[in-house]
């Protein structure tokens, strides 16, 4: 089954991105496909390469990037939501790309399930 994932919150204030990450890992482990994760609202902050969490905490920015590289997950940051929050090509972490909101609608159309994680 194909899962599209929508993440509406950043990597620290809310648990949303953590839950989405664990869900995505579990879906892939069960043999499902997760072709696209879309980052919207403050979720775009998951792609900030200048984020530097303390050493004893998880780094979701790196975890998402590593998952994308390993499992070929398309990590898409909404361009308009990103611009508002300073996430542009210059601040974008490895593994992410910036594109339009149409890519979210497309994930909803093209996946068997669209899973949403937010506040």
């Amino acid at each position: 089954m194909k899962f599209g994932i929508l993440i509406n919150e950043g990597p620290f204030t809310h648990q949303a991105s953590d839950t989405a990450y664990h869900f995505t890992k579990a879906a892939l482990a069960a043999g499902h496909d997760v072709p696209r994760v879309f980052f919207y609202y403050d979720g775009v902050n998951n792609a900030n390469k200048f984020s530097a969490p303390q050493a004893d905490d998880r780094n979701l920015i790196k975890l998402w990037g590593a998952l994308a590289a390993e499992k070929n997950v398309d990590l898409v940051v909404c361009v308009a939501a990103g611009l508002r929050r300073g996430i542009t090509d210059g601040t974008l972490a490895d593994g992410f790309r910036i594109s339009g909101l149409g890519q979210l609608v497309e994930a909803g159309m093209g996946c068997d399930r669209l899973m949403m994680f937010g506040d």
Binding site: P35, R36, D74, G95, F96, V105, E106, M109
Partner: peptide, 15 residues
């Protein structure tokens, strides 16, 4: 992070 190409031709869903 290659862009994934969805085949959405003719897909009609209710959002």
């Amino acid at each position: 992070m290659a862009e994934y190409q969805f085949d959405t031709e003719g897909v009609k869903k209710t959002f």
